[in-house]
Nucleic acid binder design. Sequence first.
RNA 1: GGAGAGAUGGCCGAGUAGGCUGAAGGCGCUCGCCUGCUAAGCGAGUAUACGGCUAAUACCUGUAUCGAGGGUUCGAAUCCCUCUCUCUCCGCCA
Length: 424
Amino acid sequence: MLDAKMIRANPEMVEAALQNRNMPGALQNFLKLDENRRSLLARVEEIKKFRNQASQEVGKLKKQGLNAEELMEKVRRVGDEIKELDEKIGQVETDIEKILLNIPNIPHSSVPVGEDENANVEMRRWGEPRQFDFAPLAHWDIGPNLDILDFERAAKLSGARFTVYKGWGARLERAVINFFLNIHTGQHGYQEIFPPFMVTADCMLGTGQLPKFAEDMFKIEGRDMYMVPTAEVPLTNLCREEILEEKDLPRYMTAYTACFRAEAGSHGRDTRGIIRQHQFNKVELVKITAADSSYEELEKLTHDAEEVLQLLELPYRVVLLSTGDMGFSSAKTYDLEVWMPSYNDYKEISSCSNCEDFQARRANIRYRPASKERIRYVHTLNGSGVAVGRTVAAILENYQQEDGSVVIPTALRPYMGGLLKIER
RNA sequence: GGAGAGAUGGCCGAGUAGGCUGAAGGCGCUCGCCUGCUAAGCGAGUAUACGGCUAAUACCUGUAUCGAGGGUUCGAAUCCCUCUCUCUCCGCCA
């Protein structure tokens, strides 16, 4: 959520930023409503001031044994007016909030301006895509061939966009989760968290999934709760409604969770394999930082995510998303894209974002600066560290052998009981 | 699921026959004094949001906030109703 005062002071700048995010006119009625609110507020507060003073007067008169009836009657009469104005203000504030909650974050000045992913900027590449001397298979063929992925039975259990992992496949998924968590906790200084997989609507509002993207989520029937679409939601909301001390910042957290997404509107995209599922595993990185260090921390966080791909020796590139391609809450985002032979292209496997104070304002996460200045909103960052299912897919494809077997990356072997390769 | 207790400021904790309590006291924190270092001691200060005034996120000023929402009243942290959460006991359960 943007700061209303900031919008009031720079409406043209905000409008221009929204245009870059393909959301022109989102601000439309805001200024009018905002002005309306302030004038109503001025009126009602004046009347309340009168009521407060008069009520005290009544108390004094009564104490002295004097008649206060006349004054009481006067106050009684303004009561209705206050009620009426308060209701109007409540309505206006609801309208303002509706607008504010649907406005995306303002992109950082270093973000390339553009309509879509074509305006993204590649920052760097790591590793060389492997040259195969045989026709490589896609993971959706490799998996069933090795009997470690079972799409048909998954459909029997749960329908489309679900996968059953079996035997060494299930073990590989678990190995990757543990490997990621160990690296981030052991080498990058993140605290491991194991959060609930269901959260309240307030949490979803806090990180920006609601109210705009309700159709992307799985809601729990009969409850005001949702399945987490990413661990970013519970991790960031851990600090909701809290005031932190600057000396305790930055705070690094990592968590494994399953993630649940309705994938509405992505019919026909990535229909084969485990790239786009209703349920997938992810290890997430979240940072809560002071306002002045978040961009530095974004670079570090991105490198933390990159490192697990390096350790697995999976070729990838880092892309800076353009204004038109960024997520709703983000001010700046780097995507990590891993090389996928089946796509003959790089495929997103991580998204690392600095949300600045956008989520903090929604979730009311603040900190007390060490310098004793006034309380400020923290900055929140999140990044996949990284998507587990897509990592498994990348391993299967990049490490496949001509005989159909798959070599286990060296770094993962200790997590696989020393297994060197999965074969039929 | 049944019975009971409770939710107050960064923390702990007062405050119910409704009024001058944004809220005692303590801790913590900040600044100053004092002390050969440390500790102790002394003094002062220390909520947030939204308005008005401002160059100001500085003063000053107004309104609101004692779990949330509603009600009674001239006036509610204090009374009434609903909800949420926490704790204790019983039951059930991986």
